[in-house]
């Protein structure tokens, strides 16, 4: 503990593998708040799923589900995984490579026509 919190440690005392930064306690209020948000979003997913729409409008329903999925992901990664309170450099290290996934999705949707079996 003393090793972890001693910011004035000389470089010889510093051992990267065992360095534990001081963690702040934010209490349980935010956790429960996000839990209820996630619960409500899942219930709304459930309700919207049973709304009957014509096939032409099904795409909007799908967009709605994807947006809700991303909102859920934001709360899980931001609050539960605590990424919101990390350094900007770490946030960027984790989030920027996701660009490749977005590119992959766009590419595969474009190429998907060529995979058509009929």
């Amino acid at each position: 503990m003393s090793n972890a919190h001693n910011n004035n440690a000389t470089e010889n005392e510093y051992i990267p593998e065992t360095y534990i930064p001081h963690s702040e306690n934010h209490g349980t209020k935010e956790i429960w708040q996000k839990f209820w948000i996630l619960l409500v979003i899942t219930i709304m997913d459930f309700i919207v799923y049973f709304i009957k729409v014509s096939p032409d409008f099904k795409i909007y329903k799908n967009i709605f589900f994807i947006i809700f999925g991303i909102i859920k992901a934001y709360f899980i990664v931001g609050t539960f995984m605590h990424l919101k309170n990390e350094k900007t450099n770490l946030i960027m290290t984790v989030l920027v490579p996701i660009v490749f996934i977005l590119w992959f999705i766009t590419w595969m949707m474009y190429e998907g026509h060529a995979l058509s079996t009929y």
Binding site: E11, Y14, P16, T18, Y19, I20, P21, E86, K87, L90
Partner: peptide, 9 residues
């Protein structure tokens, strides 16, 4: 000598 991301290894 320090943790640039301020998280443990």
């Amino acid at each position: 000598g320090r943790s640039p991301f301020n998280v443990s290894y």
